[in-house]
Amino acid sequence: MSEEKLRDKTLDFIIGEMVDTVTNSRDEIFTIGEETRTEFEKLNKELIETKRQVLAFIEEGDKLEQKVRLSRMRLSEVSKQFQKYSEDEIREVYEQTHGLQMDLSMKREKEKQLRERRDDLEFRLKNLDETIHRAEALGGKISVVLNYLQEDFKHVTDALEDAKEKQKFGLQIIEAQEDERRRLSREIHDGPAQMLANVMLRSDLVDRTYRERGVDEALQEMKNVRKMVRSALYEVRRIIYDLRPMALDDLGLVPTLKKYLATVEEYNDLTITYTSFGKERRLESKYEVALFRLIQEAVQNAIKHANASTIHVKMDMNYEAVKIIVKDDGDGFDPSVKKDKSFGLVGMRERVDMLEGELTIDSSPGEGTIVTISLPINS
């Protein structure tokens, strides 16, 4: 057996062991997440009931406090004019007042216990919610790695020349995936997650405001909560759009691309021009997704790596092929020099090759870059 085949066999064995280990870890994390979610739902129901009981005891306590006040006034009146009342009447008033005071004291104590239980439940729910989110995030990352180990890496094994290059390419894939997930994790944590946490706090404030300051201020606080919910919804929709624009399925490639380029132009304070030739029409989903992602990658490379201030995007669509040209006035680079962090270009070539297209990159240091993509359209 040759040394190369021995390396491949050893690597396949290692990958198999990794797949088994990662699969078991994913299943354990999934079980932990489900158990935590069940506990969260159970405690959340208990919290709702506890809050209801707290409000009920507050209302009953306030009514009982009014009765105690009236009974004390009656007792004071009897004490001042005890000669007008019989001993039984005096005893009855005294025992009634004492009984009401005892009931009030017990209700206030029960109310205090319920408040403490409510606070404890809220604290535990917060911790459980964080655990659920961590489990989901970790499970998602492990699923990505598992999918890579089960499918993508097997294809790479056949394509690359030796085990060393396979390992390097595989690590680039994982690194790119992890970078993207870290970015999404930061966006969700700093955006919707923070907003929803504030909504929870403000919702408790609405209840307190209603009891302490009245309906008008409580309604104003509710308006503020609605604004926060609306902002959180906007952030979630923006993140979903980054993952996969829903307009791509509904409106098609060209309208979605125009909207994307306009958003990128506004957000990054640069100039992006778009020119379309030929008759605009809908394509099969795989072509529309591929073309959108290829243009997206080319534009992002021009912004992030080339420091471009002007980008021109041209698309020529006919019934046999689609040709895309993305030209920028950025720093440029030497395409013949292979870079460690060039997975974006590798991914573009992979996507174009899958659709039997052609990708050419014309660039030199200080002269900008021209990316040309040609995809044949299978009618």
Rank of each mutant, 00 (worst) to 15 (best):
S2V: 00
K5R: 15
T10F: 07
T10Y: 05
I14T: 12
V19A: 13
E28M: 09
E34C: 05
R37M: 12
E39K: 03
E39Y: 00
F40W: 10
L43P: 04
K45P: 02
I48Q: 15
K51F: 00
Q53V: 07
V54I: 06
L55Q: 12
G61I: 04
D62G: 00
L64T: 07
L70R: 01
R72A: 02
M73D: 10
E77H: 14
D88A: 12
R91T: 03
E92K: 06
Y94W: 01
T97Q: 10
H98C: 02
G99R: 11
Q101C: 11
D103S: 04
L104M: 02
K110T: 05
E116Q: 06
D119V: 03
L125C: 08
N127F: 09
L128S: 05
I132C: 08
G139K: 07
L146M: 06
L146Y: 07
N147S: 09
Y148N: 05
F153H: 02
V156P: 00
D162V: 01
D162S: 01
K166L: 04
K166N: 04
Q167M: 03
Q167C: 00
G170Y: 03
I173Y: 10
A176W: 07
Q177F: 03
E178M: 14
E180G: 05
R181I: 15
I188Q: 09
H189V: 08
A193R: 12
M200H: 12
D204R: 07
L205V: 04
V206T: 05
R213I: 10
V215R: 03
A218I: 06
Q220L: 08
Q220A: 13
N224P: 00
V236L: 06
P245S: 05
P245I: 09
D250V: 12
L253K: 06
K259M: 09
L261P: 02
V264D: 01
Y267I: 15
T271L: 14
I272K: 08
T273Y: 00
T275G: 11
T275R: 09
G278A: 00
K286E: 15
Y287C: 00
V289Y: 14
V289K: 13
L291F: 03
F292A: 04
I295Y: 11
Q296K: 06
A302D: 13
I303S: 13
K304P: 03
A306S: 06
S309P: 04
S309H: 11
H312Q: 13
M315C: 00
N318P: 06
V322T: 11
K323Y: 05
I325Q: 15
V326Q: 12
K327F: 04
D331L: 15
D331E: 13
G344D: 04
G344P: 00
L345G: 09
V346S: 00
R349A: 13
R349D: 14
G357W: 10
T360N: 12
T360M: 11
I361Q: 07
I361S: 05
S364T: 03
I370L: 14
V371T: 14
N378E: 09
S379F: 15
